[in-house]
Structure formats: C-alpha cells, structure tokens
Design a protein around this nucleic acid. Sequence first.
DNA 1: CGAGCCTATTTCCTATAGGATGTTGCTTTG
DNA 2: CAAAGCAACATCCTATAGGAAATAGGCTCG
Lengths: 239, 239
Amino acid sequence: MAQQEAREGRLRPARRLTLADDVYESIKTLVMDHILPPGERVNIDALSRELDVSPTPVREALARLEADGLVRKRPLSGYTTTPLLTRAEFDDLFEVRLLLEGATAGRAAAHASTEERQRISTEAAATIDVEAGDGYRRHAAFTALDATFHDLIAEVAGSPLLRDSITRLHSHLHLHRLYFPVTGAPDTNTEHQRIAAAIAAGDSDADAEAMRAHLTAARERHLPAFDQLPAPGAPRDPA
Amino acid sequence: MAQQEAREGRLRPARRLTLADDVYESIKTLVMDHILPPGERVNIDALSRELDVSPTPVREALARLEADGLVRKRPLSGYTTTPLLTRAEFDDLFEVRLLLEGATAGRAAAHASTEERQRISTEAAATIDVEAGDGYRRHAAFTALDATFHDLIAEVAGSPLLRDSITRLHSHLHLHRLYFPVTGAPDTNTEHQRIAAAIAAGDSDADAEAMRAHLTAARERHLPAFDQLPAPGAPRDPA
DNA sequence: CGAGCCTATTTCCTATAGGATGTTGCTTTG
DNA sequence: CAAAGCAACATCCTATAGGAAATAGGCTCG
C-alpha cells in the first residue's frame, strides 16, 4: 500500500522533514482505524517492512505513542496496542471530560473573539452527508467532525494545557468509539449547536452547562456498546 | 560520573530490564536537576557517550520525554530542553491545577479508606530536616515531598486519568520550581495538614477548598521569582 | 567597514548486523 | 492422558557505520 508510493517517490516530498514524525502519524492512523486491532501485538520488524523504513524510526514513533497511551510496552516482550476501555475506565474518562470540557466551554464563551464565535457556529452547522460512503466511512467522518468541534472550542478557550489534556483524552475515546459505532448523529449536531449558541451569546455558565449536557447525553449513547462486549478485555487478557 | 558505575557493572544489575527505560529516567533526572539547563541544546551523541550506551536508546528516551513536554524537537536541528515557563504559561498552569487538583481533593475525601486517610495524615506530618544538607539539597527534598503528597492524594482519588494529568502538570512545575528556590516550607506543611484533616473528616467540599487555598498560596509564593527574570528566555544569568 | 556567499565541520538521521531473551511447540515421562 | 522439561524459533534490543542536512566561520565583494 504505502510502500509502493514511497518507492515511487510520491510520499517522500510530502513528509514532515523527519521520517520518524511521518511514521508516527502512519502508525497512529493504523491504530485509530483498527487496522491494528486493540490488544494485538505490534511487530516492529513487520511494521518497518510494511512502511518501508528501518526499525529505528518505528521504534521512536512507538515510544511516543506509548506516552500517548495508544500502545503499551512490556519490557522484554515488545509493544501491544492498548485494549479497549473497560466500563470503569469509560466512566472515569467521561467524569474527567465533564470536568475539563465543562470548564473549557465556560472559558471559550468568555474569551472568544467575534471571528472565533462565527467559526464555531459554522463548524456546529456542518453536517455529514448521510448518503456519502458506506456506514464505516460515514461514521469515521462523523467522529472526525465531533473531534474537530471539541478541539476548536479547546483552542478558543485559550489554555494550551487544557487543550493538550483534552486532546489526550479524546484519542482514547476515539479508539473506543470507532469500534462500536453508535447512533445519534442528529442529536449530537443539535447539542453542538446549543453549545455554539451559548458561545455566540457569551454566556459562560450556559455554555458550560450545555457542554456537560452534551457529554452526558453522549455517554448514554455509548453505554449500550458495553452490553455487546462478552468480557471487558476479552481479546487478550493475561492479567 | 555515571559511566564509571556502568563500566564497573554496578548500574547494570539494577536496570529495568530495558536499557531505554533506564536511560529515560537518567535523562529525566538530568533535566529536572538542571544539569541540562532549560533552553539548552541536547546533543544525542554526547549523551550516549556520557551514559555509555548507544544513541538508539537515547533517541527512544528523548522521544518519550518530548511527549512529556520536557524536551522539544526541532525537525532538522535536534533536541533542546524546554525553556522556563513564561508568566502566561505559569498562570495557565495554576489555573488548570486549581481545576484538576481541587476536584481530585474532593474525590479523595469521599473515596479514601481508613488506611489511606491515615497514610495521608502521616505524609502531611512528615517534614524536612532543616539542618540536613545544604540549601540546594534541602530544597530538592522539600520539592520531592510536596510532589509525593499531591500524588498520594491523586492516587487515593481513584481516577487514573486525573492522576496522570496531574503528574504531567507537575513535571513542568517541578522544572520551574527548582530553578527559583522559594521560601514558605512551613506554610506549605500547614496547608498540607489542613488538607489531610479535611480528608480524615471525609468532608469533600472542605477538602476541595483547602486544596484550592493551598494552590493559590503556593502560586503567590512563586510569583516573586518572575521579578528576578531579566528576559523570558534568558537561560543563565548569575551563575 | 558591513553584508552576503561559500565552504567546512559538526550533528543529526537512517540503515544494517549481531547478541540476548522470551515464546512456542514437541517430546518425554509419570 | 496430562504435565513438565527441552529445544528450536522468532523477536526484540543494542551497537556500529555511512549519508544528508544545517549551522558556524571565513572570505570576498560592494
């Protein structure tokens, strides 16, 4: 796949000046799209052959991904992709999101410039073309849209630290979300628009509340996925 | 220094099974103790010679440290240690700490077991032997004590995600704190004991408030350090 | 005397090879 | 037939070498 492009020199000019960064993005995509399934072993040599690079940059990218929490490293056994969220981890994630993103939304409503308020409204109005692509692609696009919206608000809030923390949380959820497609895209859009409206009005409290309501609702929408799970860690659970 | 120990085989048996992890801790210590000053260039080859290992594990460790925010990587120019916090970044840091650690303290007061409440009280009572060591060592010990206390509370709160986020923030502050020793160790101890008392009493609201008061006071204590700063990026002044 | 250009050095980045360790499958024994 | 021990395999981990890019210093030109 990608290696042909590399050999033909198409991928090279577009790379980020350092091969390791490019490899990092490639592997991240592989994990996010579940081409590398959760809980699976990650073979460094196989990856380097697949991407047509030496193991060294792959190793460097894997180290960064471990810090991101997308892969784990067992000392003398190699890397594995992180298993799916357990119910407890899922609850924890949303509690922290409620805290962080609630505060972030409040800040965004207070700090946003006129131009930024406009941008948020536009983004909230954006919707997925329901007829475009198959179910998987449409769901992936919807997921990406949601992530973009939340990141935009975090950016406007003006706290780099908050934004980083939120981004970090999102990658965990993203991993889970793609695995169990959930319905509720129209609801999500409606909730996003409520948030955007509160920001446009400059009402911090209302925006924080709208964000919390959105997250609570999203949490409820995801919950049924756990009933489909035979065991909370089933793929590979040595511990 | 460390290389002699390595050659004599003293460091080898104690290592974490993977050399890269050991190197990671070594470099982290070098950065924290300002043996590698903030804003300085980090030479990979020099580091590998210093630690008596090959550049590969050094590179891997650096990648992880970059994700931690302790070093930055400029695409074709190598790694540099992160510069000291600017005033804006400092304010941002404490705002996020207020949010995260306030909520964490509240949770800790609600969730802690009897044994954990006892452990926290003991930790809060622990004090630095003022006569032990020189000013630098004493300050480093005090800093470590403070970090331990905060991490203990985060652990008791029972949210792995919150704990990780807080730990991440602390490493940034630690970097800054060691550079500008501040007074107020007795005050810190008093405030810690108030927090411990609220946890012992199981009063969530009071504990959250005590933690926020502690952080606000700590922020005030650190503030004068910025007056000593000639320029936001000037690494070494009166050595 | 200053600015721009060129060259040389240093440094980073990537690739390949060898040693050590964990894992897996098979055989053997109780 | 099951469990334990052994051996072969695959994989990771570390070390070394070579190529490419950027930075710094010196020189020439205006």
